[in-house]
Design a protein around this nucleic acid. Sequence first.
DNA 1: CGGCAAATTGACAGCGCTGTCACACCAAGG
DNA 2: CCTTGGTGTGACAGCGCTGTCAATTTGCCG
Lengths: 337, 337
Amino acid sequence: MRVRLEDVARAAGVSPKTVSRVLNDEANVRGPTREKVLAAMAAMDYRPHLPARSLASNRSFLIATLYDNPSSNYLAEIQAGVLEACDLHHYSMMVRPLQVQSDDFVERVDRLILHHHPDGMVLTPPITDHAGLLQRLRERRVPYACVSPIERDGRIGVFIDEPEAARRIVAHLVALGHRRIAHVIGHPAHGASQWRLSGYRRALDDAGLPRDPGLEVEGDFSFGAGVAAARRLFSLPRGQGPTAVFAANDDMAAGVIWAAGEHGLAVPRDVSVCGFDDTPIARQIWPTLTTIHQPSREMGRIAALQLLDSLRRRGAGAMVQAPFSLQLRESTGPAAA
Amino acid sequence: MRVRLEDVARAAGVSPKTVSRVLNDEANVRGPTREKVLAAMAAMDYRPHLPARSLASNRSFLIATLYDNPSSNYLAEIQAGVLEACDLHHYSMMVRPLQVQSDDFVERVDRLILHHHPDGMVLTPPITDHAGLLQRLRERRVPYACVSPIERDGRIGVFIDEPEAARRIVAHLVALGHRRIAHVIGHPAHGASQWRLSGYRRALDDAGLPRDPGLEVEGDFSFGAGVAAARRLFSLPRGQGPTAVFAANDDMAAGVIWAAGEHGLAVPRDVSVCGFDDTPIARQIWPTLTTIHQPSREMGRIAALQLLDSLRRRGAGAMVQAPFSLQLRESTGPAAA
DNA sequence: CGGCAAATTGACAGCGCTGTCACACCAAGG
DNA sequence: CCTTGGTGTGACAGCGCTGTCAATTTGCCG
C-alpha cells in the first residue's frame, strides 16, 4: 500500500502536521525535528499525494506552457527546459497549443484556468504580449513568466539581447567585406522582428553604410516568406542587389538559400546568407547556415525557475538575460571582389 | 466562489451522489433525472474539481506521453493529436522526454508513475518496444497505447501499413524508369526500419529487379547518416551506383540531397531521391522532397482515443490502421536515358 | 392486487493532506 | 518568582468528490 504522510509521522514520532511543515519547507520547525522527519521520509521513500495536497491547499502544483508558434524545434527545447525546472521543484507541466488569432483565444485560456487551475503559466512569443490575455491573467490572479516578451518592464522571465545579437551577425558580414546587405524582416506580431531589424540597422550605421529601404523586405518567419523576399532581392538590377542577406530567422534563411539556387547564385560564393535561432535546419541545409545560437532550452528553464520563485515568495522572480552566441558556418563568406 | 457538485445537486433537487453519477456517465440514472442534472450543470457552468475527483476515486485523469525521438516535428504532431483526444474526454496530458539508452530509463518512468499516477500512457517509437518498460507497466498495471509499435499483437494503438507505403514509393521510382534503386536503412531499434526495408525489397521483387546488397546502406534516421550513406553510394564505380535513392526518412533524404550537391549530381536530373514521413523539412529543401505522408497528428489522436476507451471499459480499445499517402514533389523524376 | 427482483436514489464515511487555532515551552524582563 | 511574547508542535476539521451499502421506488409477474 501507499506510504502516507501519517505513516511518516508515526515513524518519526511527530504529528502529521509537522511532517507537512517539513514537506512544505515551512519555518518554525526545529533543526533536529526536521532531520528526523527527513530521515523517515527518505527511509520510507515517501511521495506526497498530489491530488490530496491540491485539494487541501488549493494549489495545483501545475505550470501551463502556452504557445502558438510554428517552430516545433524551438518549442520542444523551451518545453524541455520548463520541464527540467518543474521536475526540480516537484511541479508538473502541461502544454497547450493555441491560436492567438482565433476569436475565442482568451476564452480558451480561461477555460484552461477554470479546469486545471494552474499555479502559474509560462508564455512564449507571440503570446507574451497579448494585452487581452495578460489582462485576464491578472484578473484571475494567475502569475506568469515570459520568454522574450516585447515589454519587459514589471515582468518576470527571460530574454536575450536580440538587437545586439543581430548587430553582431551583421557586423560579421561587414567584416567579410559586404557593403550591400539585405534584411528579411520577421513576423510583425513578434517583438523579435523589431529588435532584429534595429540591430541590423545599427550595424550598418556603425559601419558607415547607407540604409537602403529596398534592401529591407517584409517576411513572417516562414520558409515561403524567405523564398518570396529573396526572389524580389535577386531580381533587383545589377549593382542594386545584395551580396549578403540577413534573414530574421533560420527558416527564412533556408528559403533565401533555396531562391538563390533558383536564380543560379552559389552560396556563399555569389551571395552570403545568415539566419537567427540556430534551429536544426541550420545544420540540415546545404550549405550549413551561419546563425545566432539562442539557448532555448536554458531559457525555458530560467523562465520556469523565475515563475516558481515568484510562486514561493510573492514579489520574487526577475527578468533574466541569457547569453547568445554567433555560430559561424558555411553560408557566409567574403564578398565577391 | 467556486460552484461545487453539492450546489448543482441542490439546484437540481437531487443528492450529490446522483450528480456524481451523471458526471461520470454511470448507468442506473433515469432519463429525466439525468436531464435535470445536466441542465443544472450547464446553467451553473459547473466544472468538477479535478484534485477532489482524483483523491476520492483514485484516478488521476492524466495521460502521460513518453518519447525519445529526435524529430521534434513528428512529436509536436503526435502530442497535438493526443491532446485533442484528452480534451475531448476531459483528461489532461503530460509529456516526458526520455533516453531509452540510459541505465535508469525504466526507473525514471517508474518514478513518474509513482509521482503522478497517470491513468495511462501513450508510447511512441522506439519506446513502444522496450521489453523492460512494458514489463514494468504491466506490473504497475498502467494501461498503455502504442504508436507504430513493432509488435502489434495484444496491443492497442495505431499504425500504418509501412511495408506497403515503402513499396508504393519505390514502385513510383520503378515506374519512372529507375532500375538501380538504393535504400538508406533507418535506425536498427525502430521497427519502421525493417518494414521500410521489406517494402523496398518487395517493390524490387515485384518489378523483377535484382536485389543488390551494395545498394542497401545502413543509417540511423539522422541527416548525417544520410550524407554518409550517400557518399558511399555516389562513390560506387560508374554503372554500379544508383539512379534513385529511397531514404527511410526525410532527414536522411535531405542528407542524400546534400551529398548529391557535393558530388556534382543534380536532383532529380542525375539522381532521384525520396524520403518517408513528410516532415516540414520535405518542403523546406530544394528540390522539395517526394515522400510518404504519415498522418501523425491523427495517429496521436487515435492512439489516445483507444487508450481512453480501454480505460472506460476494460478490454476495449483496438490496434487501428491509419491511412498514408504518397506526396509527389520535385525530388523524383525520370531515370536518365 | 400482493409480492418479488431490479432499478434508482440517497446517507455517510473517508480519500491524504493542510489551514486554523490552541497549547506547550522557552528566554528575557520586571 | 511570575509575567510576557515569541517559537515549536499538535488536535481537529474539512477541502470536493466518490465508494459502499442501505433505502426507496419501479416494473413485472402470477
